Amino acid sequence: MADKVLKFGIPKGSLENQTLELMRKSGWRITADPRSYIPATDDATLSCRILRPQEMPRYIADGSLDAGITGSDWIVENNVTLQQVESFIYAKATLTPSRWVLYVRNDSPVKRLEDLQGKRIATELVQFVKRILSERKVAADVEFSWGATEAKVAEGITDAAIDVTETGSSIRANGLRIVEELMTSNPVLVANPAAWADAWKQAKIRQIGILLRGALDAENRVGIKMNVAKENLEKVIALLPSITAPTISHLYPSQALKGVEWLAVETVITEQTVRELFPKLIEAGAVGIVEFPLNKIIG
């Protein structure tokens, strides 16, 4: 079993804590020491490394890693071919995909990307931007930005920037205007094509993808169960949202039931519907309502 080890990349930075928490909910205990980039795991067949998402595609492509989680934008920037296994929206990290947008100062005459002819552009996605400019036959100076990109445009250091945003509020707050959206990005689970061709590694990567998806699908959802007299069942069922349909089972008959046929009802609902739903369920005849947390929803 010594050769049965998957080299797996975890993104450093804004997605690191969310990824480690998702891995925990998925069944893996990964302990990251702030002074080390090699986390400890409770799975002898999983060897993790923490790397910047910007670098992850390169190291997966050259086989240094078998698989990992990175942004789809950095795959485009590195211009590498990888096997995409799963695309995620991290519910607690971002409710919408990240957007790479072209922006300028409010007083700029630039109305479209083609107006950047001969201009100076700051961005982290240098290779992607150069390809876009070439495709649209625009000759402009593209320079790598180490940060504070909005300030460079606001202060007139560069004519424009192509930067990542979710809502655009920070851009607007700095007196800047979005001209065009060029790309959207989500966290993705990707694999080295050679690793994907290996049956054992592919099965391990699929396992990670399925359980991570299950953990994400369970976020902001809870399970509920209750008892309902058969005569009230239809009223209760009409109130219940469900992934497929509620599970219904008969209670064991006993003297305490006094000849009334009672049923147990169980389903999954979004957490924010609880406060509205529970009073209605009680009015409809449900009793003994129990709410319980979920770690994963599979399938």
Score class of each variant (00 low, 15 high):
residue 1 M to E: 15
residue 7 K to T: 10
residue 13 G to C: 10
residue 18 Q to S: 11
residue 18 Q to L: 11
residue 19 T to Q: 03
residue 19 T to R: 00
residue 22 L to K: 00
residue 25 K to S: 08
residue 29 R to P: 06
residue 32 A to M: 07
residue 33 D to H: 04
residue 35 R to Q: 11
residue 37 Y to H: 09
residue 37 Y to N: 08
residue 38 I to F: 07
residue 40 A to Q: 12
residue 43 D to S: 11
residue 46 L to C: 02
residue 50 I to K: 03
residue 62 D to K: 02
residue 63 G to E: 01
residue 67 A to N: 01
residue 68 G to T: 05
residue 69 I to H: 05
residue 75 I to A: 04
residue 75 I to M: 04
residue 85 V to E: 08
residue 86 E to A: 07
residue 93 A to F: 09
residue 97 P to F: 03
residue 106 N to H: 06
residue 107 D to E: 11
residue 109 P to W: 06
residue 119 K to I: 00
residue 126 V to Y: 11
residue 134 S to Y: 13
residue 138 V to R: 06
residue 139 A to V: 14
residue 140 A to Y: 08
residue 153 V to G: 05
residue 153 V to W: 01
residue 159 D to L: 11
residue 166 E to K: 10
residue 167 T to V: 08
residue 175 G to P: 00
residue 183 M to Y: 09
residue 190 V to R: 05
residue 191 A to W: 01
residue 191 A to T: 05
residue 201 K to G: 01
residue 204 K to S: 07
residue 205 I to W: 04
residue 208 I to D: 11
residue 210 I to G: 06
residue 210 I to Q: 14
residue 210 I to H: 09
residue 214 G to D: 11
residue 222 V to R: 04
residue 226 M to I: 04
residue 229 A to W: 11
residue 238 A to D: 06
residue 244 T to F: 14
residue 247 T to C: 14
residue 250 H to P: 12
residue 251 L to I: 03
residue 261 E to R: 12
residue 266 E to I: 07
residue 279 P to V: 05
residue 279 P to H: 05
residue 283 E to C: 01
residue 284 A to Y: 01
residue 286 A to E: 09
residue 288 G to H: 13
residue 290 V to S: 10
residue 293 P to H: 12
residue 295 N to G: 02
residue 295 N to D: 11
residue 299 G to H: 14
